[in-house]
Nucleic acid binder design. Structure first.
Length: 713
DNA sequence: TTTTATGGAGTTTTT
DNA sequence: CTCCATAAAA
């Protein structure tokens, strides 16, 4: 390993592994885990409760298949949902295997699998090499643009179209099918837009995230030769977090598994929190229909939490209907009661949480990183941040605006996309006037109309003769300057030195100066420049990296029929960037001692000794929209995820009132609080703490802080 | 026609 | 804070 980094320095992953992992030491597993590892011969469903060591099972199973059963590593595919999970799995498998044994093993996300599939089968799918991948925001732009003529850029409507399209794509419903099935007026309208969007994306040699799953699945279902070939490439398929699979992913798995039925899936229906974006937890139980010989193993021993916490979790989740009951237990004793704190409002809540952390840490000499504060939605973090800052408590937040949502990153990515794929109108529209080149809406509308008529990409149209009659000389001149620069860099890219061409491009357009200039403050400008450089650096590092090390995430190619062979290192790096697969998350790099703030969604898979879940109120958790949509069960699972993050102590807080808009709203405690077992539930004042009491408490904490500081120094 | 200034409004969860 | 619409200025 070139650069061994302390990636999992957070307590979330370090602690409580069942045992030190040594090659195939299956005796460190409990009987159920061992059963799951050793079972072959029929499909296997592992129902893995929270904290039950499922990653150990899946990684050891891979090692077992390779070492004991002598499967070729290159014929084992493991699929996860996030790049982080894939990296983690890869590292842990590496730790179990002898050097070189894992050669050719494939561990990656559904989307990276789909991308590699499409690259290999590009010809059959009618895709040109260099195709672009559009993320949700790009697709929304496409929809808005295409609807502009009829609906003056109504973003809300566009969003609803996008959502509906997502549903169709999850079910692999084509635009034509959507139209023929449409029952409402709205569905007809949406299906028509869907059709336009798909046509437009194909014309731009682009696919979206859903297509990365949908296209391979469609091809596998319809082409027997290709299906057989892929089925023969895979001797055993493992899927993690199976409850998060959507309809398309379910069908993809089914096609890949084929008649060999060598499949291991791991999941937990109680931790299914992504139904809102198409996940179907029922996929877990439909497996037994497809595979009558399915073996089910339940993992109920928990290695994370005290039994007080686990009993609370069990009782809470028992309010949901279940196909298979699970009861978590551990050998960690009863532990403390769950504390429930009532607060006057969100400021008081934040202050109290911050105060308690400071206080608790001083009393018990814990690290800041042992604490997490979890919440339903991002905006709840705001008062918390302010309180933490006032108390001088260091914290880190997950979520927020992701790296890839930043304007500078999207701009840079769009330039790269355009270089790889000159048909990518979407990217062109984004960067053609960034930095300002005097190319405005009117010019682009003229170009757009022309391109639409000619049914050609906009970039190519700029250089046609016919465009001259449509645009003024000055406008065309500016467009041509732009297009000339793109073609020039594109050629340089083809000729080999891609990285150099990219860096020259950004220097020539003065992109860093542009960032500094456009920013509201110098600090912000520098931050944006840094983000931009980080991106370029990621490409540089990826190119420089030893390809021998790359066997895991990169799905192993086969000699024949590989359309992907002509892809250069730069192109590959950019592709991985689009899939967010290239960046080591910044927060993982620092093993700094900070309190963790995260949404409940972002907290899944993590663990902390001391956890506080704030805002346990009706209309927040469960969220108002979920109550209206009658999806409270998923909210309960979200609460369950929150509860099961805690190893030693769990605190739940709620407010009696909070500000919404400008109004002060009376709130009521979450129904989930009532669903916790009484014997492990300790209400600390059903009555709110008054602001005076709260302030007094803050003062006392400050006092003890001062005392401890002066004592130290 | 394009750029810049200004004010107003609104935030569930995200690979 | 950041996205948007609108209107004035270049």
């Amino acid at each position: 390993m070139g650069r061994q980094r302390p990636r999992h320095s957070s307590p979330a992953v370090l602690n409580f592994r069942p045992a030190k992992e040594s090659p195939l030491n299956l005796s460190s597993l409990n009987p159920r885990q061992r059963e799951a590892v050793k079972h072959t011969g029929s499909p296997l469903l592992v129902l893995a409760g929270a904290g039950s060591g499922k990653t150990s099972v899946i990684t050891r199973k891979i090692a077992y298949l390779i070492q004991t059963l002598e499967y070729p590593a290159s014929k084992i595919y493991a699929v996860t949902f996030t790049n982080k999970a894939a990296r983690e799995m890869k590292e842990r498998v590496d730790g179990l295997l002898e050097k070189g044994e894992g050669r050719g093993l494939s561990v990656g996300t559904f989307h990276s699998f789909g991308l590699n599939f499409i690259r290999r089968e590009a010809r059959a799918l009618n895709m040109k090499s260099g195709f672009s991948i559009l993320d949700g925001e790009d697709v929304l732009n496409v929809i808005t643009d295409l609807m502009m003529a009829t609906n003056e850029g109504d973003k809300d409507l566009a969003k609803r179209v996008q959502h509906r399209m997502g549903e169709w794509k999850n079910d692999l419903v084509s635009p034509a099918q959507a139209l023929s099935f449409a029952e409402t007026e709205e569905d007809v309208q949406f299906a028509n837009i869907y059709e336009k969007v798909q046509r437009y994306m194909r014309a731009c040699n682009s696919v979206d995230f859903d297509d990365l799953i949908a296209l391979p699945t469609w091809l596998l279902e319809n082409d027997e030769v290709i299906r057989t070939r892929w089925q023969n490439k895979i001797r055993h398929l493992l899927v993690d977090e199976y409850q998060d699979t959507n309809g398309a992913q379910y069908r993809l798995v089914k096609q890949l598994v084929g008649p060999r039925e060598a499949l291991t899936v791991v999941g937990d229906d109680d931790q299914s929190i992504y139904a809102w974006r198409g996940a179907r937890p029922e996929n877990l139980f439909e497996l037994s229909n497809d595979y009558p010989s399915l073996k089910v193993v339940k993992l109920e021993q928990n290695y994370r939490s005290t039994n007080g916490i686990l009993k609370s979790a069990n009782t809470l989740i028992a309010n949901n209907p279940h196909e298979h009951e699970k009861t978590l237990w551990s050998d960690k004793g009863e532990g403390d009661d769950i504390r429930i704190l009532a607060c006057a409002n969100e400021e008081a809540e934040a202050e109290r949480v911050a105060g308690s952390i400071l206080d608790h840490r001083l009393r018990t000499k814990q690290k800041y990183r042992d604490y997490a504060v979890l919440y339903r939605s991002n905006h709840q973090a705001r008062p918390l941040e302010m309180a933490l800052q006032r108390f001088k408590i260091p914290y880190k937040m997950t979520g927020g605006t992701s790296f890839f949502a930043r304007a500078e990153v999207r701009d840079a990515m769009s330039y790269l996309r355009l270089l790889l794929n000159p048909d990518d109108d979407n990217a062109l529209l984004r960067v053609v006037n960034t930095p300002r080149r005097g190319i405005g809406i009117a010019t682009l509308e003229g170009l757009g109309r022309y391109a639409m008529d000619r049914e050609k990409p906009m970039l190519a149209c700029i250089d046609e003769l016919g465009i001259q009659s449509k645009l003024k000389d000055a406008q065309l001149e500016r467009l041509r300057n732009f297009s000339e620069m793109i073609w020039e860099k594109r050629q340089a890219l083809d000729e080999g030195n891609g990285l150099r061409a990219i860096m020259e491009l950004f220097v020539e357009i003065g992109y860093e100066d542009h960032l500094r200039q456009e920013s509201s403050s110098e600090a912000q400008g520098e931050r944006r420049v840094q983000n931009f450089q980080f991106l370029i650096d990621a490409i540089r590092k990826d190119i420089a990296r030893d390809p021998e090390e790359d066997t895991l995430v990169e799905l192993e190619g086969d000699e024949d029929d590989s359309e992907a062979a002509d892809e250069t290192a730069v192109e590959a790096a950019i592709r991985k960037l689009v899939l967010r697969d290239l960046l080591e998350r910044q927060e993982e790099e620092d093993d700094s001692d900070r309190v963790q703030l995260a949404t409940l969604h972002a907290a899944k898979g993590l663990e902390f000794p001391f956890v506080t879940v704030i805002g346990c109120e009706e209309n927040i958790l469960p969220h108002r929209g979920s109550i209206e949509a009658d999806t409270v069960e998923e909210e309960r699972r979200l609460a369950y995820v929150g509860v099961t993050r805690a190893m030693r102590e769990l605190t739940l807080t709620y407010c009696k009132a909070r500000r919404m808009g400008g109004e002060k709203i009376e709130t009521s405690p979450s129904r989930f609080l009532d669903e916790l077992p009484e014997e492990h539930r300790h209400w600390e004042g059903r009555d709110p703490v008054s602001p005076e009491q709260n302030r007094a408490m803050g003062e006392s904490v400050f006092a003890s802080l001062r005392a401890s500081l002066s004592g130290d120094s």
